[in-house]
Design a protein around this nucleic acid. Structure first.
Lengths: 132, 132
DNA sequence: AATATAGTTCAACATATATTGAATTATATT
DNA sequence: AATATAATTCAATATATGTTGAACTATATT
């Protein structure tokens, strides 16, 4: 696991570890397609596999990754418990949306503050003069 | 490259291929830290490496990935072209934000529409009755 | 009780990519 | 001209993870 050591001097507006974890899971073509189908309310393993032409064991694998980061819920059919239904975890999705929006907010972009390069030698003194 | 074949029957609200590509690049701990620093206006390879305790060649590698998907811009120092300055591509970031927000919008979540499982045998006929 | 069904788990394999150290490029300094 | 500097490129390696086929679990049906 990575040491987010720069957090001390350069704090990010969100939990970077959690954000990375979730993005990693979502940044996979087939999982994003599965996620898209779940957004539409499709839920059993079989239908996901049929729609995407992916074998059920692979669907299982990808769903378990999505579950592991809390983005997807599971539920067994009350009548016939062989069927398993998957759904989007709305709270987790809202959390993800908020975190993503906060971290990748274009308004966070700051202009260059040169601490290296030729200008770094010049500008600091100019600033200190300007301040007085 | 994956065939986004389900696009026909289950269209996503955004270009999934581009979104996956960019998320893949961002879903890496060190790159997210680099990105965070760039948001603060830090830009040369050397300072990124110093802050994050990462060798310059590895910084180069990660920056090239970020550049490859258009999220980061490059510029050489006008006075001393040995220095290279990196910055966030604001337009790309705005595009990414919009796409992410559209795809992961919690309001897109639909209730289950059973097409398989025990209830699938019952409900369709009920619907057709209800429609008449 | 035997068989069928929905789904998961497992081990083996394939593939992608992060990491490392050395070599290279291009420019600036002495 | 020789050396130093900032950064990139390259080949080799390590690591993570998607994919596959077979075995397995649990429940339902006949």
């Amino acid at each position: 696991m990575l040491n987010y050591i720069s957090e001390e001097t350069h704090p990010a507006p969100v939990n970077l570890e959690l954000l990375t974890e979730r993005l990693k899971v979502l940044a996979e073509p087939k999982r994003l397609l599965i996620f898209n189908l779940l957004m539409e309310g499709v839920q059993c393993n079989c239908e996901l596999g049929d729609s995407l032409q992916i074998p059920p064991n692979l669907i299982s694998h990808h769903l378990s990754k999505l579950r592991a980061v809390g983005l997807v819920n599971v539920e067994r059919d009350a009548v016939d418990s062989r069927w398993v239904y998957y759904s989007i975890n709305r709270a987790a999705l809202e959390e993800l949306n908020a975190a993503f929006g906060a971290f990748f907010d274009p308004n966070r972009i700051q202009p260059r503050q040169p601490k290296c390069g030729p200008q770094a030698l010049v500008i600091p003194s100019e600033i200190s003069v300007a301040k007085k």
